[in-house]
């Protein structure tokens, strides 16, 4: 099976984020990491390849720094990588991101395309589904299990409130992968070494621009959320905090 994994670089989970001066995006001088569900998507692709043989290709769209995501993917076992490299890819809406990816892979035929179910930054949860529509492929979202069979794949979709559903679908197909579908592997030293010799194709904005259009949604302003509650901050040394909390639990919340 030939599998494409769409991956994104996002700010580290506990990185302190600050707004830029225009208040339209974050200041980019933070530490980055692989978007968590995308790491699970890559792991799943590697496992499928180990079972059924084939090829795993990782793709990302972002500035130069985003190549780190691809290097990690190659070190973990991806066979090659594609980098849509430009600062401009950061500010795209999901439709344009999907169109750029579709344009970059137009000469390739994948059996499966994976994305994480959503990104930690925009949180659109849309790029994979849009990509499926552009490519004319069936899709399924929030996938927790993938079994290949004679007619295609049987996937397990996560639904709300603890419900699940198996769906049979033909290949090729696009799947958005949920965190926790598998256990992530670490890159080995030899893997990291081998990654340096694996092919990494760079695609410029100019090469895919004709497939794209204006952003249909635009962030006018980004800001710290307005508080909906009147929060009481409790401080002091730990022992004192404990005492104050118990006082609240007893006299205000009446749960003790």
């Amino acid at each position: 099976m030939k599998i494409l994994v769409c991956m994104k670089q996002v700010p580290q989970k506990d990185a302190p984020l600050k707004l830029n001066e225009a208040g339209t995006w974050i200041r980019e001088d933070v530490s980055y990491e692989v978007n968590e569900p995308d790491a699970f998507a890559l792991e799943e692709a590697l496992r499928q390849k180990e079972k059924h043989s084939g090829e795993v290709v990782a793709i990302t769209a972002g500035p130069t720094r985003a190549s780190q995501v691809l290097r990690e993917a190659l070190a973990k076992g991806a066979d090659r990588a594609i980098h849509l490299e430009d600062n401009g890819f950061v500010g795209l809406d999901a439709y344009n991101t999907a169109r750029a990816i579709a344009a970059a892979i137009k000469d390739e035929k994948f059996d499966l395309i994976f994305t994480g179910l959503q990104s930690d930054d925009y949180g659109y949860a849309q790029t994979g589904v849009i990509l499926a529509q552009i490519l004319g492929l069936p899709h399924a979202t929030i996938i927790m299990q993938i079994e290949k069979n004679d007619s295609g794949v049987r996937v397990k979709r996560e639904l709300e409130a603890g419900f699940f559903q198996f769906v049979d679908m033909p290949l090729p197909a696009v799947l958005t992968i949920q965190s926790g579908i598998n256990k992530l592997r670490y890159a080995t030293l030899i893997g990291i070494k081998q990654a340096k010799t694996k092919p990494l194709r760079k695609v410029t904005m100019a090469e895919v621009q004709s497939a794209m259009g204006i952003n249909l949604q635009k962030i006018e302003k980004m800001y710290i959320p307005e508080k909906s509650k009147n929060t009481q901050f409790i401080d002091g040394p730990p022992g004192e905090i404990a005492k104050k909390l118990v006082e609240k639990l007893k006299n205000e919340l009446r749960v003790i």
Binding site: P225, K227, S228, K229, N230, T231, Q232, F233, I234, D235, P238, G239, I241, A242, K243, L245, V246, K248, L249, K250, I256
Partner: peptide, 29 residues
């Protein structure tokens, strides 16, 4: 972001705060 919706907020290391909190709750009970 959890603090945005919290009634009571403690900014600190849970490993410092929870042990005495357990003790204080036991005492109160």
């Amino acid at each position: 972001p959890i603090f945005e919706i919290s009634d009571y907020a403690v900014v600190g290391n849970l490993f410092d705060i929870v042990p005495p909190l357990i003790e204080e709750i036991k005492k109160a009970k």
